[in-house]
Design a protein around this nucleic acid. Structure first.
Lengths: 298, 298
DNA sequence: TAAAAATACTCCATAGGTATTTTAT
DNA sequence: ATAAAATACCTATGGAGTATTTTTA
């Protein structure tokens, strides 16, 4: 039995006349008769009662009609869903996240993606950079987010945006009276940096910037994440440097200041994915990334 | 697309290797490759990622696999259900009933049928003999039950059992002291008979028996059904004649007596159905009727 | 007797087979 | 270098067409 038999039987059951059904199916009457006979033979069931006016359905025929319609609609649905999945419109997107990107940028980007792909279930997984790479390779995630990325042969790293850095100080600190500061100020105060975990990371980026300016800062603490770092600053434990994303998080007493020699003071946010990943969902996601860049350029 | 594509795709998705799947399907590898390509082309979707080790599923492939399995099981179920329907094991049996048969005989017979056909829904419709015939012709019912039946060209009437008649008297009545009575006694007391409705019916059967014995009884009342008739006898309104089925209904004060010249005093219970009805459910029912007759003969 | 279904036969599209090539690690 | 998939080409099953016969109310 195949789907043709179902289609033919449904037509016959609806027309109650094999000749008319054949017309509707754009075939001639004899092959339709034979297909129905074949179906009856295969099922070992009489589906139709032949009358001189046409045919009528037996109880088994009624039952098979119902089932055939169910199958037909399930098949149509399967085709539809599969096509949509093939266009990246339906399915699941697993994303690895870590760090400050999640505070502002990533939600905006995901919003953009979900507007175009409401039926894709986006699942976020908090993991370190190395866990992301491992998860990408094992296909547990499709996309990761990172700031500092050494090049890898099998992973593509695509820049999403380049964010300026800000100084975080307590409002009791003398620097807090300025409207902007120089990177050189970092040499004069103990620094709270983040994150802990595998290097290189944002800590090294800050050290690199200081290096460009010709000094090595004094690090008072390295903490797990930006929120903890800012909380320490709010508690008077020194000053810190944060990407722009973080300034939406502003506990009492915290002041964020731009760097006036900020040209050097930037940090990237990138997304990473498997080089050999051709999946339509990833393609769709990268289109959203491009849109996001368009919106945030300049 | 047809069911072959689903079967093939499921095999490939399960083996994750086209060659192995082809072995399992007892076909060679190239046609299987082509069928899968055809499927992908038709759906305009990449279902498989070809690797040097075999294949793996894309997200769309995973989705289609799930759908394909659903369809396959629905098809299997459809075949199974239709076959069972074709054997009269599944479906619905509409039965027209009327009169005293329902008190004892019909329930026993239905019990027999349902033991063998638990998945056939038996629906009882109370209707007069003429309504039964009309309903049979319109296929609203498949079987009817009757006691007195004039032959019809399109309806078969099949005897189920021949029941002896009993006299129903009140225990204050002189006849109630006997162990059995003669039909002739019916000439000496006013008779309560049933049913009302289209003739000929049980009333005529009783008159016929009396006629054979050479007298015409005095009819005090004709009531709708046996239960009403017996109730009247219990209330002292005369005596009545009932088929054996009725004696399970025994209100206080009622005594049932067999006829000692009972050879003439019998009444039939028959089932009726369309002569041209070939449905397996009717066949199954008639098998149950035969079984019932076997059990009750002699 | 007339409308519909069934049968007889013919043709060709396509599923499947064999042999071989291409591909990707 | 190897295992698997893809391609090329051939064969033959069976679906569809035309003409005709059978059926039954």
């Amino acid at each position: 039995m195949d789907l043709r038999h179902l289609k033919y039987f449904i037509a016959v059951a609806e027309e109650l006349n094999i000749g008319r059904a054949a017309l509707r199916l754009h075939i001639s009457q004899p092959p339709l008769t034979r297909q129905i006979q074949q179906l009856e033979e295969e099922l070992d069931v009489q589906l139709l009662i032949r009358t001189p006016r046409g045919v009528e359905l037996t109880q088994a025929g009624e039952m098979f009609l119902e089932e055939a319609r169910n199958i037909r609609s399930l098949v149509e649905q399967a085709i539809e869903r599969t096509k949509r999945a093939g266009q990246g419109k339906l399915g699941r997107l697993d994303i690895g996240i870590f760090g400050t990107g999640i505070l502002n940028t990533i939600p905006k980007l995901l919003q953009l993606f979900r507007d175009d792909h409401p039926d894709v279930r986006v699942v976020l997984h908090t993991m370190t950079k190395n866990e992301q790479i491992e998860a990408l390779r094992q296909k547990r995630i499709t996309v990761g987010f990172n700031r500092i990325m050494s090049p890898l042969p099998d992973i593509t790293c695509e820049l999403i945006m380049r964010e300026p850095l800000f100084l975080a100080v307590h409002n009791s600190h003398p620097l807090s009276k300025n409207v902007s500061v120089s990177v050189k100020e970092l040499s004069k105060h103990p620094l709270v940096l983040f994150p802990t975990g595998p290097r290189p990371n944002f800590v090294d980026r800050v050290l690199e910037i200081c290096g460009h300016m010709g000094f090595i800062p004094e690090i008072s603490q390295i903490v797990g994440d930006a929120v903890t770092g800012v909380a320490l600053v709010a508690g008077g434990f020194g000053i810190s440097v944060v990407p722009e994303s973080v300034i939406t998080f502003k506990p009492p007493g915290i002041v964020y200041l731009p760097f006036d020699d900020w040209l050097t003071g930037k940090v990237d946010l990138s997304c990473i994915y498997r080089k050999d990943d051709e999946s339509p969902i990833l393609k769709a996601f990268l289109i959203a990334v491009n849109k996001f860049r368009e919106q945030h350029k300049g």
